[in-house]
Design a binder for these strands. Structure first.
Length: 421
RNA sequence: GUGGGCGUGGCCAAGUCAGGUCGAAGGCGCCAGGUUGUGGCCCUGGAGAUCGAGGGUUCAAAUCCCUCCGCUCACCCCA
């Protein structure tokens, strides 16, 4: 086989479509009930949007972006995350003139150059929401509730909601200094990655998975214990709202996240199974992002949820996606003139809103009925030269193995009557 | 970027350790047929494989050696 789907990408075959439709339908419904409107942004943007928005020293920007120069010389990147483009659109379309907060949701493909593994792809798809223009903790609670409700309505169980506050631009620098001080005393014990993190992204020291680093993280200063008064108030109000909503959360002081734009609230939803894909949904507040994008100070919060990971967990938990309704009838035809009429008959059925397909031409009756059987249709319509000359068609109920003749011109009505009965 | 596992028809897969009987088993799926126009079960037949690619060893390689490619899992990162 010469050509295959590129590494880390995959085709979504018809047999998997019910899962995608199911997740999309449920997500759309939840978003609508929360008052979120859909926003679609381009698959590619100026590279600078992500460099400025996500952060120069993040892994996403440094080694995972698909970037290229187009024929006009512009530097563009395939969207590596969903939030920056939404913020760009918010600014570009003057959405600050709309009632705040502006509530938006999206479905979109996301591209990251990474080594693929279970639940991780170079092209994956996210459902995400953003609530922009209101800094109050009640909006944080709303967004988290939306995410939690989505997972619940999908039928996923045994999920964990992890929340944390990483402070804001005011109090985080001092906290980072404390962190550095803590880790600097034992640099020798740190893993190589963490030695780099010490200077480049000290927050990330906290969620290193290396045993020695985890040890040190246990004794490290906690983010939630070094918040300024404003951040502390915001944080405590959020937890109060979550309790009022009855959403079971777990404060995880080592939860940080790898995108630079987060401030205050960060959260993740994790499935029960271990082994690879740890989180199916992640998000947080990004009150400084708009300014990074040269817009006016505008608070915002949102999350992204991975479609592939959600579907993976639906399958693991045995949640079945509703099947799209199959064809109702297969039109079986014998003889050249009957075939010509059968082509028209199938068309008439579709015009009447009935799913119908023609059985493969040139095959025996036995073969055509086998085909109808394998399609799983409830009815076969059999049209031979004999029926044609008499102006009738045989309507066969596949499950009951019963059949009767119906007027050829009234086939659609006969099918509807049969379905109703 | 680092490490492990694996590559045999569309899918699953025996065979690879101990080279020849592999001119490659079996199952699913696909196509045809099982007498005159009737499916699902069953039966028969058929199509479909450069055994991932290239090179090497050998009288002989799907089986051994080398290189490359691909897939996969984990680290990392994240959805």
């Amino acid at each position: 086989m010469s050509y295959r789907a590129p590494r880390g990408t995959s085709d979504v075959l018809p047999e998997d479509q019910p899962y995608w439709r199911y997740v999309e339908d449920v997500a759309r419904g939840v978003a609508r009930r929360f008052g979120y409107g859909r926003l679609d942004t381009p698959v590619f943007e100026s590279s600078g949007l992500f460099v400025r928005g996500v952060g120069q020293v993040t892994d996403i920007v440094e080694k995972e972006m698909y970037t290229f120069q187009d024929r006009g010389g512009d530097h563009v990147a395939l969207r590596p995350e969903g939030t920056a483009p939404v913020c760009r659109a918010y600014l570009e379309h003057g959405m600050r003139n709309l009632p705040q907060p502006v509530r938006l949701f999206y479905f979109c493909p996301i591209f990251r150059y990474d080594r693929p593994q279970a639940g991780r792809y170079r092209q994956h798809h996210q459902f995400g929401v953003e609530a922009i223009g209101d800094a109050d903790a009640s909006v944080d609670a709303e967004v988290i509730e939306l995410a939690w409700r989505l997972m619940g309505e999908l039928g996923l169980t045994d999920l964990s909601l992890l929340v944390n506050s990483i402070g804001d631009a005011g109090c985080r620098p001092a906290f980072l200094e404390r962190l550095r001080a803590h880790y600097s005393t034992q640099v020798d014990h740190l893993c190589d990655d963490c030695k780099l993190r010490l200077t480049r992204s000290p927050l990330r020291l906290l969620d290193c998975k290396q045993p020695a680093c985890i040890e040190m993280a246990h004794e490290a200063p906690r983010t939630d214990e070094h918040l300024c008064a404003d951040c502390r108030g915001h944080w405590e109000r959020l937890l109060g709202y979550l309790r009022a909503l009855g959403i079971p959360y777990r404060v995880e002081p080592r939860l940080v996240r790898g995108l630079d734009y987060y401030s205050r609230t960060v959260f993740e939803i994790q499935p029960p199974q271990e082994g690879g894909q740890t989180n199916i949904c992640g998000g947080g507040r990004y009150d400084g992002l708009m300014e990074q994008l040269e817009g006016p100070p505008t608070p915002g919060i949102g999350f992204g949820a991975g479609m592939e990971r959600i579907i993976l967990n639906l399958k693991r938990q045995g949640v079945a996606a509703p099947e799209a309704p199959p064809l109702t009838a297969v039109v079986v035809h014998l003889g050249a003139s009957a075939t010509e009429r059968a082509v028209a008959l199938a068309s008439e059925l579709r015009n009447a809103g009935i799913g119908a397909a023609l059985a493969p031409a040139g095959r025996s009756l036995r073969s055509q009925l086998r085909y109808a059987n394998s399609m799983g249709v409830p009815y076969a319509l059999i049209l031979g030269d004999d029926e044609l000359s008499r102006g009738v068609v045989v309507l066969r109920d596949m499950a009951r193995a019963e059949q009767h003749e119906a007027p050829l011109d009234g086939a659609a009505a006969a099918l509807e009557a049969a379905e109703g009965g």
